[in-house]
Nucleic acid binder design. Structure first.
Length: 414
RNA sequence: GUGGGUGUAGCCCAGAGGCCUAAGGCGUCAGGUUGUGGCCCUGAAGAACGAGGGUUCAAAUCCCUCCACCCACCCCA
């Protein structure tokens, strides 16, 4: 038998209420902040991700679904959402729109990773990008939107971690300080020794017990910011205070994609546990230029739908279940069967969800099924009703029924 | 990619070398007299025990390989 590929999952009808709930909240929030939806292709030129995400990131080095198409081009299944949106921004000349351009997406993301609870090879992300404005007020707005999203979803006990990792002016100085600091440490783990050369920022969030204390007392990027970045960060913190967004400064917060500048943030449930981050984002002021556009600042945020749902369940958040079927039309006999098919169709045309039972079962079986489907009403048509031109309307919950004209059904079932 | 745990019908699971041609519960389907559900009762369908190999007179039960899921690491959403 075939199975869904490793790390992928079917989203079954019983799960759908969660997805629809999350989508509904997202639609509300994005509307409130003036974001418009964009959908980009599932695969892109591999170069787009290599250039934006960064050659030495884990994502590019070992997690991409890359394949050669029949024309010999290297394509990659989208491993993150920001680069495609930036590509679309440039491709469609959105720099000619009023800035910032605010776009959001809900789309599948692919990463070849070892699956775990809350970690999949295909998962869905909601992401939002505000491109074309570098004002820290916009950073605050994006962070606020993320925060309000989780609040609106009904998630409690989440925390916001915040940091600034500087820009290309001040970053080199900081990296040098970091390298100098770590190079002097004897007992770094093997991973950290390679990070030291290729991606020193990542040294900060190593989870190895031996590296922990070392990272804890490492130089903080916030102490090495240039005046401009310092000003930006200060303003951002002030704005967040003005709109009452609680945040925790975390000088070890680093993100796994190279394009981030200045602001980075992450949201996670306070309860400990692996795969806990539910969302994160940051500013990427050099990305658009890196992709060939004029220097254009941007900031974005993304969150994993599966992880949101995981937490909704953990916290017992009640999601609205969409209304089910309203009526089952049961019948006995051939002529009544025709009436049932006609009646069910007629009810649907008036906006009342209805099915005629099928399969020629006994009335008992038909009502049993109606009960299992949890419909509030059953309509019964037998020989008597056919002769009299009536139908029997049964209130399933009240176990009462009466014989009425089919013309009165619409009014009664509304 | 590394280390560990698990894998029996759609779901939850009993079962620890021969008594298993695999038990139970949920669910599904049917019936409990003639046109009526939910409770109850009865019955049926549904599993060669993740896959493949091996050990043994004999394996769901032991061994090996693979696959999948879960946990930790890694990384991130």
């Amino acid at each position: 038998m075939f199975q869904a590929a490793r790390g992928t999952a079917d989203i079954l009808p019983s799960e759908q209420p969660y997805w629809r709930y999350v989508e509904k909240v997202i639609a509300g929030i994005t509307g409130l902040y003036g974001y418009q939806r964009i959908d980009t292709p599932v695969f892109e030129d591999t170069g787009l991700f290599r250039r934006s995400v960064g050659e030495y990131t884990d994502i590019v080095q070992k997690e991409m679904y890359t394949f050669e198409d029949l024309g010999g081009k290297s394509m990659t299944l989208r491993p993150e959402g920001t680069a495609p949106v930036c590509r679309a921004y440039l491709e469609h000349g959105m720099q000619n729109l009023p800035q910032p351009v605010k776009l959001y997406y809900i789309s599948p993301i692919f990463r070849y990773d070892r699956p775990q609870a809350g970690r999949y090879r295909q998962h869905y992300q909601f992401g939002a990008e505000a491109i074309g404005e570098g004002d820290p007020a916009l950073d605050a707005e994006v962070i606020d939107m993320a925060w309000q999203l989780y609040r609106s979803l009904g998630l409690k006990d989440i925390s916001l971690q915040l940091n600034s990792i500087g820009c290309k002016e001040c970053r080199p100085k900081y990296l040098a300080a970091l390298k100098e600091y770590f190079a002097g440490r004897a007992n770094l783990c093997a991973d950290c020794r390679t990070r030291l050369e290729k991606n020193p920022l990542r040294l900060l969030d190593c989870k190895q017990p031996t590296c922990q204390p070392v990272a804890e007392t490492a130089p903080a990027s916030a102490d090495y910011l240039c005046p401009a970045c310092q000003g930006h960060f200060t303003q951002l913190k002030k704005y967040l205070g003005l709109i009452n967004i609680p945040f925790t400064l975390n000088h070890r917060l680093v993100r796994g994609l190279d394009y981030y500048t200045r602001t980075v943030f992450e949201v996670q449930p306070e309860e400990e546990g692996g795969q806990s981050t539910i969302g994160g984002g940051g500013r990427y002021d050099d990305l658009i230029a890196e992709l060939g556009g004029r220097p254009t600042p941007g900031i974005g945020f993304a969150t994993g739908i599966e992880r949101i749902i995981l937490n909704l369940k953990k916290q017992g958040v009640n999601v609205a279940v969409p209304p089910g079927l309203r009526v089952v039309v049961a019948f006995m006999g051939e002529k009544a069967g025709e009436e049932a098919v006609k009646l069910a169709a007629r009810l649907r045309r008036t906006g009342i969800s209805a099915i005629a039972s099928a399969g020629g079962k006994s009335l008992k079986a038909q009502l049993r099924q109606a009960n299992a489907l949890n419909v509030p009403y059953a309509v019964i048509i037998g020989e008597d009703e056919v002769k009299a031109g009536t139908v029997t309307l049964r209130d399933m919950a009240g176990a009462r029924q009466e014989t009425i004209s089919p013309d009165d059904l619409e009014e009664r079932l509304k």
